[in-house]
Simulated assay, not measured.
Amino acid sequence: MSFTANTALIPIDVQRGFDYPPWGRRGNPAMEHNGQRLLAAWRQRGWPLIHVRHDSVQPGSPLSPSHPGNAFRDGFDPLDGETVVAKSVNAAFIGTDLDLRLRRLGVDRVVLFGISTDMCVSTTARMASNLGYRTVVVGDACYCFDLIDADGSTIPAEQISRAHLATLRAEFAEVTDTDALLASIDES
């Protein structure tokens, strides 16, 4: 893996609203630390960085623009001059100008992380791949939540994340961790 200034970092939905109901137990407590390391690396190099924020249109959602949960988590606020793309569905490419922005920047590879592995990160990764971007998902800079299956059993967040990352790796994206990605950047 070698990285250049044609690689954009896209943090997805790193918002406070995921600390409110109805979300359940989350996995990966290291997500914030790893995500902040990625942000620092991109900012240090001046490489393209586009923040994605979920602006829910569902009544009462903690991700609604009128709810305090719509705000970015501490340490993930965009800096002056950094772009924010607002979406209202899982995929960051639907109903937004993300693809146009990336193409205008000459981006050919995207690096994704955020919340949640199995929903918005996965959906965005699949679309990025289908749109022709070389796609990288940083698995230890994502997390998801426990889910209830059709039988009423709880599937732990860690199992959900593992399965989704494996699916992405099989077809849509290179899956890596923060240490490996940052080491690759330093070698580039």
Rank of each mutant, 00 (worst) to 15 (best):
D186A: 15
Y143K: 12
F76M: 05
A166G: 15
C142H: 04
F72G: 11
D146H: 02
A8N: 10
E171P: 01
L182Y: 03
V107Y: 11
A141N: 00
M127D: 15
Q44K: 05
G95D: 07
I12M: 08
T83R: 05
A170V: 02
E158S: 06
R16K: 13
T178F: 00
H51D: 13
R25Q: 09
V89K: 09
D118L: 11
G35W: 03
E82L: 03
T7P: 04
D97G: 04
V136W: 02
R73S: 11
S64T: 08
S116C: 13
A157V: 01
P59W: 14
D97N: 06
C120Y: 02
L39M: 10
T123L: 14
R45M: 10
S122N: 14
G27S: 09
L39R: 07
C142T: 14
D55H: 10
R162D: 00
T178V: 02
A166E: 14
D140L: 03
F145T: 01
I185W: 13
D80L: 07
D97M: 00
N34P: 01
T154A: 12
R25H: 10
T135R: 09
D118M: 12
M31W: 02
D186R: 15
A71L: 14
D179N: 01
E187A: 15
V52I: 06
A86T: 03
P22A: 04
F113P: 00
S188T: 07
I10V: 05
R104P: 04
D177S: 01
G106V: 00
I10P: 08
A40S: 15
H67F: 05
L79K: 09
R25V: 09
L100Y: 00
D80K: 08
S88E: 06
L9I: 01
C144S: 10
D108Q: 06
A41K: 04
Y143C: 05
P59V: 08
A157D: 00
A92E: 09
I155Y: 00
V137I: 14
T7K: 02
V52E: 12
